[in-house]
């Protein structure tokens, strides 16, 4: 319950500055531009959103750290972090609350892309199953990316550094699967790399099949990085 209170506060604080709006405006605009303007949607002529969701992992590489970069770094820079840590909240509530707030912002950003499936439905007979799968996987991937971003934000007081770190780490998690097919890679290790690749799990859901393994993977990443985030904050509380 306390987590939800913190999440609410975090969500609304994001809209107190123009940065939140810019992020929220940029995401659907870039997604639509990549799909309709730069992508081969009209050449392919098929009412399918696979081309749209193919860009989502890369957009989240930029967007998720942009949402999460300020969450801890800003508290630390403005000196409110110490005050926050003295509040009668458990650290767990604080970390989960901030994460949920950031996740809700991402949800709103994704909501603003709803025009794309509506347009496709008007243009043809859209299969809504993969669309639903795509949005579910975007939320899960976004959640995992935010957890990573949140952890990195806790490591630094500088938002830009937090964003750059986030982009770098998420790039790694999105590209690591590509290395799995390299000829020099031992097969077992290649399979492990595929298993931790964010995009690999994402694409399996966007075709319209939600696998328990993929869902468990994203939640595991969230739990792991939120725990790591909690440890960083715990250390800071005692330092």
């Amino acid at each position: 319950m306390r987590s939800l209170l913190i999440a609410r506060r975090e969500f609304f604080t994001a809209f107190d500055s123009p940065v939140g709006y810019v992020i929220l405006a940029m995401f659907p605009a870039m997604a639509a531009a990549l799909f309709f303007v730069l992508g081969p949607f009209f050449l392919q002529g098929e009412a399918s959103m696979r081309g749209f969701f193919a860009w989502i992992p890369w957009l989240l590489v930029v967007l998720a750290p942009a949402i999460s970069m300020r969450i801890w770094a800003e508290e630390r820079r403005s000196g409110t972090e110490e005050l926050l840590l003295t509040f009668p909240f458990q650290l767990r509530d604080l970390v989960v609350g901030k994460f949920l707030g950031a996740w809700a912002i991402l949800g709103v950003a994704l909501l603003f892309t709803a025009g794309v499936p509506i347009t496709l439905e008007c243009l043809g007979d859209l299969d809504w199953g993969p669309v639903l799968g795509g949005y579910v996987s975007a939320m899960l991937l976004g959640g995992a990316s935010l957890a990573v971003g949140l952890f990195l934000s806790a490591l630094t007081a500088n938002q830009i550094v937090a964003w750059l770190l986030g982009v770098t780490v998420l790039m790694f998690f999105n590209l690591v699967g590509g290395a799995a097919t390299a000829s020099a890679m031992p097969p077992g290790f290649g399979r492990l790399l595929l298993a931790i690749d964010f995009g690999e799990h994402f694409h399996s859901i966007t075709r319209g099949v939600i696998g328990l393994g993929s869902v468990a993977f994203y939640f595991a990443v969230m739990v792991l990085f939120l725990c790591a985030n909690g440890i960083v904050m715990e250390r800071r509380r005692w330092s």
Partner: peptide
Amino acid sequence: LSQLRWRWDLT
């Protein structure tokens, strides 16, 4: 959980 291969086909 991955080995269980439970999944929901939304197509």
